[in-house]
Nucleic acid binder design. Structure first.
Length: 910
RNA sequence: GCUCGGUUAGCUCAGUGGUAGAGCGCUUGCUUCACACGCAAGAUGUCACUGGUUCAAAUCCAGUAUCGAGCACCA
């Protein structure tokens, strides 16, 4: 028995005037879960559709970026179900190494005043797992609140035991292949997290720094100095040379000489290197190979010593200079500058803007540092670049393919080791006899170990007591890049799931992680599964605030989606966001968008509420073809609904989510409510015939039932609710499980009849607009007692006169071809003929003259434009025939209107 | 420096060769028997600039200006 039955007994008309989404959304979500609507069946005969969720950080909380991203995925999943696919949307979370470890360390510090080293690796990991258990479910709950139809029975976590097996196995395979190696290299070091980072985790930021000009004395020419500019005097102790450009004539004579390093005192050589830019600073560059990537390379070229003068936390490690030893790098910078000043070696200090790399997570400047790390030479780079370039994987918008290509071009080996504890520990063991202490293992090179002393495998050694495991863990992304298949398949098994659903169909993610994630997943797909992991990648907009700034906690400009959902409903939030989400550009978020979404939900709800007030029995089995003659408004709305279905499909094909939303909005609000519903209200009044009433209710129900289905991916809860309440579903059915019918609503109806009906409906709607306009001009908008007289018009006018009156808010519209308007009677040329508004006669003749003159003027301009165009021989010769035909029709229409208006104007003055 | 994107109504954005659009905001009028989270009417544009292609350019091409993103450099 369905939970939702408890909704049914209450009549719609007893419900509040405004839709209240919160209860409805929660109970429907639960009903879907209870009925296992989201679970994928690998044995299904239906064609597969699959996606994997970009796994959010396990301890993260939902932000608007997630809302946009997951709304899109939910829309795709729900639409695919409606199109008859067996859908797998596989959810899960990411362990997020640094982010999570940092949070737990902070808590440990605050609550117990301890560091992770104080309590040790095992106890610390225990705490992280506890934290994960406590906070890990939050974002999943939030995704459920949003209505995401993920298969929660298959939820995965990147540190699940079998997922971890994949990670270790992949590492071992790549190591055996020679693509993973260990070495001492210059890496990006985070002095707060105390770990190496990949290039992608370093964010360059513009900084207002200082450029210090100082001088080093030449050893062979006392009293002579070489001037050097630097932004980092605190690394001076690590200087091992000064470099100049070999082509720089100012310094050529000094190359090969030595200068005196001020502290600790030393004599260091002057070398020539192409890297040095003679234009910058003084053209002489101090070389600190231990603390700068470029300096390191120069050091290698000139065989220079490497002197590391920092501890891992970026405090100075230089006992020879006690003034600086132990100081933080930024304190040391000022102190070193002061010391140079005292020694008379400082020339000047200039303001200088430069880029400094910041640690993505800890938000402090990274320190280039030489350390022993594990690196990966990327596999399958050629296939990956080719697959994207040749659109075997299509990127949408397509321009991101170029960004992808640019990155692939200059690709550097990936530093995959992290000096953290939370993560997948590197599956490498060293024989204890050879390596007695972990500290030694860190400085060990693999070349010094024979094959028997090294164990690299997904399985630990059989005799663990004789081995020591590598201390480091892997970069989080080293597990994420396996996500599309490691979530579907245990290592070494060929699961039903992977057979049915891999490769996946679509991937929806942000363009900011093309390098981190998307490109790497493609490489892993090729290398480990021999094929592409997905066919289409849809990149979402990046959400900014209304001023165009990135959303961030520190700016406080990031609204909590849960608050928004409480206020406007999940459907309102989804719809508001989707309707304006630009295809290519950034999205500027404004709460007004969500308000619009809520208002729209309310509009639909009220249209249905109205329907229930005039009759509680559903007529969704109504067949237009069974009725020989419907009213024009019926044909019109049925045809527009059929067109909507077609247009929706076209827009889905191109992932044009904003257009899909606009179509849905336009149809319901303008076409269905403003036009159709207003036009047929008369059919539902007590004095209307039973037959007419039945037909109108039938048309309402078939259109609304179909519309709710089309809208369902965007507003799943509301549409499910209304479909049940309106009686459009059989007992036990869910809207989300109904396939979209292929048949049009107007199937079997003669197309000429439809066209005629639509033309008449159009004419009436257009005329209603003109007459309302006329009333408003004479400030009669609110009056209902105005009668219009038609002096001309089509033969069907009388049949529709009552409807037109209803739409206009008029007493009546009567036909009188002999009618001779009194002077000053306002009139208008409409698509249902020449109409006059006698009530206002004699009121203001001058105003009427002015109004007509203005209108005539406007139309004359249009006529002129058309005539010009049609008078252009080249236009008539070259333009498409249908374009010319349209132009001719337009001219004829304008001219007809013009002559009628001119006649009316003439009558006024005669 | 390289690459990519934007510039259309007061605001946020659609529009891709053939009559300039939406939502919000604004003005005016409405307790119209679904909805004020609403109804009706209205005002508002040198489609950044300059040139080119075309019978026809907001739309295609080239350049300029300007804003933004990414990459490289950054002593």
């Amino acid at each position: 028995m369905r939970l939702v039955l408890r909704h049914l007994p209450r009549a719609m008309s007893e419900l509040p005037k405004a839709y209240e989404p919160n209860e409805v959304e929660k109970s429907w979500y639960q009903a879907w879960l209870d009925a296992k609507c989201f679970e994928a069946d690998p044995s299904s005969e239906k064609p597969p559709y699959s996606m994997v969720i970009p796994p959010p950080n396990v301890t993260g909380i939902l932000h608007l970026g997630h809302v946009l991203n997951n709304s899109i995925q939910d829309i795709l999943a729900r639409r695919a179900r409606q199109k008859g696919h067996e859908v797998l949307w596989l959810p899960g979370t990411d362990h997020a190494g640094i982010a999570t470890q940092t949070k737990v360390e902070k808590q440990l510090r605050e609550e117990e005043g301890k560091t992770r080293r104080d309590i040790g690796r095992e106890a610390f990991l225990e705490k992280v797992w506890q934290w994960k258990e406590k906070h890990g479910g939050i974002i999943i709950k939030q995704l459920k609140r949003l209505g995401c139809s993920c298969d929660w029975s298959r939820e995965r976590f990147t540190m699940d035991a079998d997922y971890s097996k994949w990670v270790a196995q992949v590492f071992a395979d790549l190591f055996k292949e020679g693509l993973i190696y260990r070495g001492k290299r210059m890496v990006n070091w985070c002095p707060v997290s105390l770990t190496a980072l990949s290039d992608e985790e370093v964010i360059p930021k513009k900084q207002n720094s200082k450029l210090y000009y100082m001088k080093y004395e030449l050893v062979d020419e006392p009293g002579q100095f070489l001037e050097i500019a630097t932004t980092r005097p605190e690394t001076l102790m690590g200087d091992v040379a000064v470099a100049v450009n070999p082509k720089d004539e100012r310094y050529g004579k000094y190359v090969g000489q030595k200068v005196k390093r001020p502290f600790p005192p030393a004599e260091i050589p002057i070398v020539a290197d192409e890297h040095v830019d003679p234009e910058f600073g003084t053209g002489a560059l101090k070389i600190t190979p231990a603390h700068d990537k470029a300096d390191f390379e120069i050091g290698v070229r000139h065989d220079l010593e490497i002197i590391d003068v920092f501890h891992p936390d970026a405090t100075v490690n230089c006992p020879d200079v006690p003034e600086l030893d132990g100081q933080d790098r930024f304190v040391a910078r000022k102190k070193a500058a002061a010391m140079l000043e005292e020694m008379g070696l400082m020339l000047k200090i200039e303001e200088h803007e430069n880029n400094v790399g910041f640690s993505e997570r800890a938000d402090v400047p990274i320190e280039p540092r030489i350390s022993m790390q594990w690196f990966l030479k990327y596999p399958a780079t050629e296939e990956t670049a080719k697959a994207v370039a040749q659109e075997e994987i299509s990127y949408r918008p397509a321009r991101w393919a170029k960004t992808h290509a640019n990155w692939m071009d200059g690709i550097q080996d990936w530093c995959v080791s992290r000096q953290l504890w939370w993560g997948h520990r590197i599956p490498v063991w060293y024989r204890k006899e050879k390596v007695s202490a972990l500290q030694e293992a860190e400085s060990l090179t693999l070349d010094n170990l024979s094959a028997g002393d090294l164990h690299v495998s997904a399985e630990p050694p059989m005799d663990p007591e004789n081995w020591i495991q590598d201390n480091d863990v892997l970069d989080t992304w080293f597990s994420s890049w396996l996500w599309p298949f490691a979530t579907m398949q245990h290592l070494g098994e060929d699961s039903e799931l992977v057979k049915k659903f891999y490769p996946t169909t679509d991937l929806v993610t942000g363009p900011d992680i093309i390098f981190f994630w998307v490109a790497r997943m493609i490489m892993a797909g090729f290398r480990f599964k021999g094929e592409l992991p997905f066919k289409n990648v849809f990149f979402t907009s990046i959400i900014r605030d209304i001023k165009g700034r990135k959303m961030s906690k520190s700016l406080g400009n990031s609204p909590d989606p849960i608050d928004l959902m409480d206020k406007y409903g999940a459907d309102g939030l989804r719809f508001g966001l989707m309707r304006t989400a630009p295809v290519g550009a950034d999205l500027r978020f404004d709460e007004a968008l969500v308000e619009e979404g809520r208002n729209f939900a309310n509009k639909i709800y009220n249209a249905c509420r109205f329907r229930r007030m005039v009759g509680s029995d559903s007529k969704s089995d109504f067949k237009p073809a069974d009725h020989p003659s419907l009213r024009p408004y019926h044909y019109d709305i049925l045809a527009k609904c059929d067109a909507l279905a077609v247009n929706q499909e076209a827009a889905y094909q191109e992932y044009r989510f904003n257009e899909i939303g606009s179509q849905l909005y336009e149809f319901l609000w303008s076409e269905f409510c403003d036009k159709f519903l207003e036009a047929v209200k008369g059919d539902l009044r007590e004095e209307a015939s039973e037959a007419q009433r039945e037909i109108t209710l039938g048309v309402f129900d078939v259109v609304m039932a179909r519309y709710l289905q089309l809208l369902h991916p965007y507003m799943p809860h509301l549409t499910e609710e209304l479909s049940v309440r309106m009686g459009y579903l059989a007992e036990g059915q869910f809207l989300m499980q109904q396939e979209l019918p292929e048949q049009a609503l107007l199937v079997g109806v003669n197309s000429d009849i439809i066209t005629t009906g639509q033309e008449q409906a159009d004419a009436v709607y257009e005329a209603a607009g003109r007459l309302r306009n006329l009333k408003a001009e004479y400030r009669l908008a609110a009056r209902k007692d105005v009668t219009f007289i038609a002096k001309s018009g089509p033969d069907w006018l009388e049949a529709e006169a009552e409807t037109l009156s209803l739409l206009v808010g008029a007493e009546a519209i009567t036909r009188d071809e002999a009618y001779a308007p009194e002077q000053g009677t306002p009139g208008a040329v409409t698509s249902v003929g020449e109409l006059f508004m006698p009530l206002a006669g004699l009121i203001d003749m001058e105003a009427e003259k002015a109004r007509l003159d203005k209108e005539i003027d406007k139309i004359q301009k249009e006529v002129g434009k058309c005539q010009n165009k049609l008078g252009n021989e080249k236009f008539v010769a070259n333009a498409k025939p249908e374009v010319v035909a349209v132009e001719r029709e337009r001219l004829a229409e304008w001219e007809g209107n013009l002559s009628q208006l001119q006649q009316m104007r003439a009558n006024l003055t005669s």
